[in-house]
């Protein structure tokens, strides 16, 4: 059984088609990185999963049941766009309201627990409107975590978080899926951070899922490259360009060779042509580069 199973989902806003024929599968126990450009339909899909906007067509199943099932939806935690808090109330009052909404027994204990998780226990008495962006984001995550949700839908949860906040979130996410029953859908533009925790990926473009893969599959798809620096960079680039099919210079000033070869081959070839290699390493492209490549139509 999958945590989320979407078939042929579509959503039209007037003449504009925000999501068209989207298929998506989130397995149980997965941290599903939902990636796409701005306006690609990520948030719209997430809102439809949470029942916040009606779908124009298609089906959504949560844990094998229709997404309108009362019992399943009662166990969905959400953070979409902004945390839903009343600005005039304190963090504590907002959390208690959400605890009441979720009919949590021992609400106070549970609220303290999640506030501690996101390191916000000291700011519980602050009015929500006086909290900083990062603090607000932490409160939003704490609200989503309340009531031990089976499915978490988080839209840009890492926005505004400092390094420590991001580390905490990684720990929290990993902890949540430990039992293999709960799943998390995370959409984020911070792909480097996402790559550290995601077990599955879904890449959406123009409202359509263009690929879904596991982190292992992504790892296998991400090409290995050789990055090097030499004493004569322009000559090196020209020489390498003559022998290898794809040679590029990256932002850090390294020349990258994407073809299947070994560093020894490259060094020997350059040495034979009078170029001395000063630095050489083998690396893999990350999720960010893979995504950019995919959007450009590369493979």
């Amino acid at each position: 059984m999958n945590a989320v199973e979407i078939k042929n989902l579509s959503k039209n806003f007037g003449a504009k088609q925000a999501v068209c024929g989207l298929d998506m599968t989130v397995p149980m126990g997965a941290i599903y990185g939902f990636i796409g450009e701005n306006g690609s339909g990520k948030s719209t899909t997430e809102k439809m999963i949470c029942g916040l906007i009606p779908a124009s067509g298609g089906s959504i199943k949560l844990y094998g049941k229709d997404y309108t099932d009362i019992d399943v939806r009662a166990r969905v935690g959400v953070l979409i766009e902004s945390p839903g808090c009343f600005p005039g109330l304190t963090v504590w009052d907002n959390m208690m309201l959400q605890a009441a909404n979720l009919s949590i027994p021992n609400a106070e204990k549970e609220v303290i627990k999640v506030l501690k998780t996101v390191r916000m226990e000291g700011a519980a008495g602050n009015k929500y409107k006086n909290c900083s962006l990062g603090m607000k984001q932490r409160v939003g995550i704490a609200m989503a975590l309340l009531g031990d949700p089976t499915l978490l839908v988080l839209d840009e949860p890492l926005n505004g978080l400092d390094a420590d906040g991001m580390r905490i979130m990684r720990e929290v996410f990993t902890d949540i899926i430990k039992d293999g029953k709960r799943s998390i859908i995370v959409s984020s533009h911070l792909l480097g951070e996402l790559q550290k925790v995601a077990t599955h990926y879904g890449i959406i473009r123009h409202g359509k899922m263009i690929c879904e893969m596991t982190s292992d599959e992504l790892d296998a798809s991400c090409r290995t490259y050789i990055a090097l620096q030499a004493d004569e960079m322009s000559k090196t680039k020209t020489l390498l360009g003559c022998k290898y099919s794809r040679v590029e210079e990256d932002e850090a000033g390294y020349i990258r060779v994407y073809d299947l070869t070994t560093p020894e081959d490259v060094v020997t070839y350059l040495y034979e042509n009078g170029v001395t290699v000063t630095e050489i390493m083998t690396d893999k492209i990350g999720l960010e580069e893979y995504f950019i490549d995919l959007m450009k139509g590369g493979k």
Partner: peptide, 10 residues
């Protein structure tokens, strides 16, 4: 406030 999202999700 966006609280409707929390309400109607569950």
């Amino acid at each position: 406030s966006g609280y409707a999202k929390n309400l109607f999700t569950v």
